[in-house]
Design a binder for these strands. Sequence first.
DNA 1: GATTTAAATGTCGTGCAGACAATTTATCAA
DNA 2: TTGATAAATTGTCTGCACGACATTTAAATC
Lengths: 236, 236
Amino acid sequence: MKIAQYASKNRMLVAVDCIIFGFDGTELKLLLIKRGFEPEKGRWSLMGGLMKRDETIDHAASRVLKELTGLENVYMEQLCTFGEVERDPVDRTLSVLYSSLIDINRYTQQINQDYHAEWFPLKKLPSLIFDHRDMVTLAQQKLRYKAAFHPIVFELLPEKFTLPQLQHLYEGIFDTLMDKRNFSRKVLSTGLLVKQKDKERTSSKRGAFYYKLDKRKYQTKFNAFLNFIPNPDSLR
Amino acid sequence: MKIAQYASKNRMLVAVDCIIFGFDGTELKLLLIKRGFEPEKGRWSLMGGLMKRDETIDHAASRVLKELTGLENVYMEQLCTFGEVERDPVDRTLSVLYSSLIDINRYTQQINQDYHAEWFPLKKLPSLIFDHRDMVTLAQQKLRYKAAFHPIVFELLPEKFTLPQLQHLYEGIFDTLMDKRNFSRKVLSTGLLVKQKDKERTSSKRGAFYYKLDKRKYQTKFNAFLNFIPNPDSLR
DNA sequence: GATTTAAATGTCGTGCAGACAATTTATCAA
DNA sequence: TTGATAAATTGTCTGCACGACATTTAAATC
């Protein structure tokens, strides 16, 4: 058999699937979409679509995300490629998984109106199609891993946020509770936060000061470690 | 246009490429192969091959590695998928990159005889085809990252090894020098090493005691952190 | 002005990390 | 036999980061 024949016989479809994490100030959430076509029409799914021959994988991921949610210019990262033989019952399809972190409040109205996407608490996900549940599990592990050493959590927060909010976010990601005093000491010692003069007043009587991220330091210190590891064994 | 047409138009070839790290007691090395077919025939390349429709990606990676080097049952890990449009000049081809760690002395003769593969010091690599140079750079970063937190370096060592060897390995991976006293204190404190009664005598007059890895503890403690980070900023 | 709720702040003890030097073991040569 | 050599082995001290832990302060509500 010639090489060309061999090759064409082994061509495959490649999909991209996007996991989108959001944080509403209390809870970690995932954005899912109701599948609009067969097979598995009507069930919940990650944002996915087929990659085209004339685009890069990263481009396909951005395009799919834009088409299905309207989201643009968000934090995106390639995680892993899934390739079990029977993962897609219709056709032989690989899937390259991407993970996104977004500020939930910035987009949630837009997403709900224009697209049939919905936020689900990470702890109360509906049943998902194909191997999407495995993808979520893996993405969650990778988020933990990365958040333990890099300040990526700020991608999930609005421009202004409070220390209690930040702590709740870490507690959500690591599914644990932290000590307020030790937490603020550690997070402030990074020098990444700039205290504001105004307060957030809805969730407490006293009100909590807002902070902003020092974006210059965020860039330069991204690879410095924060060591926010409540339990090292939980990381992969 | 029908979905089926759309789909078939966008089918692609998928390759797997394997990066194989080895350690000879002094230096980190990479196993390369001389490409035996056009295009780029005669130039150096990673171990690569096309994936088949009826196998998983992991299977393809193991198969390719076996076919090209005879290696089996070695540490392998999927790193990332490359998909620049023009990365392969002949056909639209994605490449899923894998990284392997092996004990160089265990296989090196066999590899040299039966296959046209050769070890190169990581610091003196020849020019590589396609985007393989980028792949190596990425794999090296990932190796650093992982070695900083997990005891994977033992995959690169023979069953019996000395502390100086282990230290040289870390120094090679992180491209730095470490203090002997602090190093042995830290590495022994993990409890992963078992001191042997015999010594290695070729590389010094006094001789250095052999150690073995406690494989049971290696399994259970794999996700515990060693914190061998000479310079956090060098990690990705 | 008393009560309530959550934010903000400080101390102490332990353990690990990094800087640093002297001793021991075995080989080799005179 | 002895002395020189080369590398492995071992120990101390200091400072800092971490974890455990309780009280005070600010603002709203009644």
